[in-house]
Structures are given as C-alpha cells and as structure tokens.
C-alpha cells in the first residue's frame, strides 16, 4: 500500500497528443528505446500517447522492469484531464492544443508535421518558441530537444482576450462604449 502511494505521488507523465490528425512520425519518434530512456533519465515515469488517425501503434509497457510505463489511446472527447495530470506535453502544432496546454501552464514541446500540405502551423509554434513559451521541434529533432531542454527557461503565457476587437467592432457599428 505504502509503496503504491509513493508510486502515485512520484508519477510524472509525458502526454503526447496528435489531435485529430495523422502524425505517425511523431508517434514513432516517441516510441524509440533511445527516447524512452532519455525520458526515464529525466525522471519521467509514464508515457501516454493519443495517436489519432495514425496507423502506427506504439508498444505498450507496464514498466515492471523499472522502465517507462507506456500506454496509448486513439481519441478522447476531451484531453483536458490528460493535460492537467501531465508533467510534460508533446503536441502537434494545432492552435487548440497549444493554447489549452499553455493556459494550464504545462511545459510544452510542439512538434511540427512536415507532411502537411499547407504548413502554416509551424509559424505559430516558431513564434511562441521565440517568445520562450514552448519548445518547437520536428520529429527528427525531438530527441535532441528533450535531451537539451531546460524547462526553467520557459516563460508563462498570459492569455489574451477579444476585448480590443469587440471594442472596435462596437465603435464601427455606432454602439456606445460601456
């Protein structure tokens, strides 16, 4: 009992999400021995992968030999709970999961999918990485990013709001300011 309590307390999960996309390159990149070893070395105990439309299934592991516990699922109506309980989030570059993670103040690595035709999404990830709100990587550089990252260097993101737009729209239409 005491043991399992300790186990829960020190649980540190890496949550990988690809949203509704197909992003096998990312799932493969986190499913390598080298990568999982690096996560263990950094003190993470669990790896949970939301794999979306991809066809590559990662290997599950119960972690009995002291290695990383690996599990996966395909979709979920809400990943909010997964994000909340994660210690590190590795996400595709969709703006939805990026801002959901940043609002929860979780360390985030965004992995850009180079196979997408219109790849404007890397713009957002790169801009937010430049502002030090997250790390930006590609499937082939993800290992390097994790191996060299310093989570202390990340700055919290302060969510914006639509008040300035709303004000301009109201003024344009002739509605009085409140």
């Amino acid at each position: 009992m005491g043991d399992s309590d300790d186990g829960i307390k020190s649980e540190r999960t890496v949550f990988v999400t690809v949203g509704t996309t197909c992003f096998d390159a990312l799932v493969k990149a986190v499913d390598t021995q080298e990568f999982k070893k690096e996560l263990s070395a950094r003190g993470y105990t669990h790896l949970l992968i939301q794999m979306g439309r991809g066809s590559y299934f990662p290997k599950k592991s119960t972690g009995e030999d002291g290695s990383l516990v690996v599990d996966y699922f395909i979709f979920s109506s809400s990943i909010a709970d997964n994000l909340r309980s994660a210690s590190l989030v590795i996400s595709h570059a969709g703006s939805g999961s990026i801002f959901e993670t940043l609002r929860l103040r979780k360390p985030l690595i965004v992995v850009v999918n180079e196979d997408l035709m219109d790849n404007h999404q890397s713009e957002l990830a790169e801009e937010l990485a430049e502002r030090k709100h997250l790390f930006c990587a590609h499937p082939q550089t993800l290992f390097q990013t994790v191996a060299s990252m310093n989570l202390e260097s990340l700055l919290p993101y302060h969510p914006g709001d639509a008040a300035p737009v709303a004000k301009l729209i109201n003024r344009f239409l002739g509605f009085p300011d409140d």
């Binding site: 639509a162 737009v165 709303a166 109201n170």
Partner: peptide, 19 residues
Amino acid sequence: SGGHTAEMLNLLSMLQKDR
C-alpha cells in the same frame, strides 16, 4: 474546425448579445 471556432467563440463572449 482547426481552432477557428474556439477563437470565434472567444470573440463572441466579449460582444453584448442583445446588440
């Protein structure tokens, strides 16, 4: 889809619904 709806609903939350 793809983030547009979330942003739009964010904007709507700031607009007076009776207007």
